[in-house]
């Protein structure tokens, strides 16, 4: 394919248009971060709005840390994300591997039963799921937050199954001939080969779980167990007194630091993971 060297006016227009659109995304973001470092002597924000603070100040952050137990919220959320990741890896790879390489009666039916999870939205079953979680004593625990989604993660199972379908069957036969049990074959031979799809699942799941509000808010009713998102929502809604705009922005900035850090380093990988979900349709 030969690249055209001439710069056409249409090309310039395209770049211009894309840049304007990119600014629509970037400018609010920059305003958001920079205003969190801007000191204002009121509960509201500075007028007129400015993109660069005149004086760099960490006042809002001091307010945020001293008024809201943000570090505890960060810790709680990190534990939930990690629990979700580990359990998702175990359940998704085990079921995905079995549905791909397994040789047993009723495989099609079982696949349909598991995929039925994708057809019923989690949100339309909130109350009964919560009553199950409460009955088994998991309200206000990280496990209670992750368990219902981890045990119905049909999409991830489907990812693993599709990925596993592309791996050779000979490996399974070879392992069996050597006298290894099914679990051993799964763990020693296939599991290491599943690394790319496991990474995809972890990335997508971490973003979802970190940013989720509704279900964690249902399960976690005590402030000690709040996630970052619940903490933000509570502060913004003025549940703990008046909302200070600068503090609200600083809290929001703190809340996006972990994912932003991952985004900066694994940007390419995240893009691939998202693209992968679309390909599997």
């Amino acid at each position: 394919m030969k690249k055209r060297k001439k710069i056409k006016p249409a090309m310039i227009a395209t770049y211009l248009l894309l840049t304007v659109l990119a600014l629509v995304v970037v400018v609010p973001f920059v305003w958001f971060v920079s205003t969190s470092f801007d000191y204002v002597k009121s509960y509201s924000l500075r007028f007129p709005p400015r993109l660069i603070p005149k004086e760099f100040s960490t006042f809002n952050y001091k307010m945020a840390i001293s008024n809201v137990p943000m570090l505890k919220y960060l810790k709680n959320t990190a534990i939930i994300v990690a629990t979700s990741a580990v359990l998702n890896i175990i359940t998704a790879t085990l079921a995905g591997f079995t549905l791909s390489k397994g040789n047993f009666r009723g495989k099609g039916v079982i696949l349909m039963v598991i995929l039925s999870n994708m057809m019923v939205p989690f949100e339309s079953k909130l109350l009964p799921i919560y009553s199950v979680i409460r009955t088994i004593g998991l309200s206000n625990t990280s496990l209670g937050v992750v368990l219902p989604s981890v045990l119905t993660n049909a999409m991830y199972i489907f990812f693993v199954k599709t990925f596993c379908d592309g791996l050779p069957d000979d490996l399974y036969e070879a392992g069996r001939v050597d006298g290894a049990g099914i679990l051993r074959v799964y763990w020693k031979i296939y599991f290491p080969l599943l690394t790319p799809i496991i990474a995809t699942i972890v990335v997508l799941d971490a973003i979802n779980v970190w940013n989720d509000l509704l279900w964690p808010m249902v399960v976690l009713t005590q402030q000690d167990h709040y996630t970052v998102q619940i903490g933000l929502q509570m502060y913004n809604s003025g549940a703990s007194g008046t909302t200070h705009a600068g503090t609200a922005l600083a809290l929001s900035v703190i809340s996006i630091i972990p994912l932003s850090t991952i985004y900066i380093f694994c940007q390419k990988y995240i893009v691939q993971s998202i693209a992968f979900t679309g390909m599997k349709q």
Binding site: I90, T91, L94, A95, F97, T98, L99, G102, N103, F104, I110, V113, I114, S116, N117, V120, S124, K125, L127, P128, I129, V132, L147, P148, V150, L151, T152, A154, I157, G181, I182, L183, Y186
Partner: peptide
Amino acid sequence: MSWYRLLLISLVGTLVFNFYPLIET
């Protein structure tokens, strides 16, 4: 059976967190 047991977690999960709540709703 040695295959079925590997699907136990997901099937129980589907039963408890999909079928039961759906019917219950």
